[in-house]
C-alpha cells in the first residue's frame, strides 16, 4: 500500500507529516510505504497511491486523483492521523 504526503515544496512540513503518519500506521498495525512529495510532483507520486495526506490549503492543488484525499489539521497529532487513516483504510 502506498500513501503520499504532500506539501508545497516537498520537504519540511511533508517530512513531519511522513514521520507522524508512519507512527500512526505503526500504531494501527498497517504496513504502508509513505512517500513525501510536493505540489508539482503529486500527480506522478500519487498515481498508484491509495491515500494522499495534506493540508486543507493544498487540496485544490492536487487536481484529479483516484486516491482518497485526507486533510490533516494538526500534523503533530498522531491520534488525528491514526483516526483518519483508520477510516480511510478501513482496518
Amino acid at each position: 500500500m502506498k500513501i503520499v504526503v504532500m506539501c508545497g515544496i516537498g520537504l519540511g512540513t511533508s517530512a513531519i507529516l511522513k514521520v507522524n503518519a508512519e507512527r500512526a500506521l505503526e500504531r494501527l498495525g498497517i504496513d504502508a510505504d509513505v512517500q513525501a512529495t510536493d505540489v508539482a510532483g503529486v500527480s506522478v507520486a500519487a498515481a498508484d497511491a491509495q491515500v494522499i495526506l495534506t493540508s486543507s490549503e493544498l487540496v485544490e492543488a492536487i487536481g484529479k486523483t483516484n486516491a482518497d484525499v485526507i486533510v490533516i489539521n494538526n500534523y503533530f497529532d498522531v491520534d488525528e492521523l491514526a483516526a483518519k487513516l483508520e477510516v480511510a483504510l478501513g482496518s
Partner: peptide
C-alpha cells in the same frame, strides 16, 4: 512559499513552520 501555496505551513494550532 506562503504567497504561492497558502498557509499550509501552519501545521498545528498556533504554530507555523517557516521554511523554503
Amino acid at each position: 512559499v506562503i504567497a504561492e501555496f497558502g498557509a499550509y505551513i501552519v501545521i498545528a494550532p498556533g504554530l507555523a513552520l517557516a521554511h523554503a
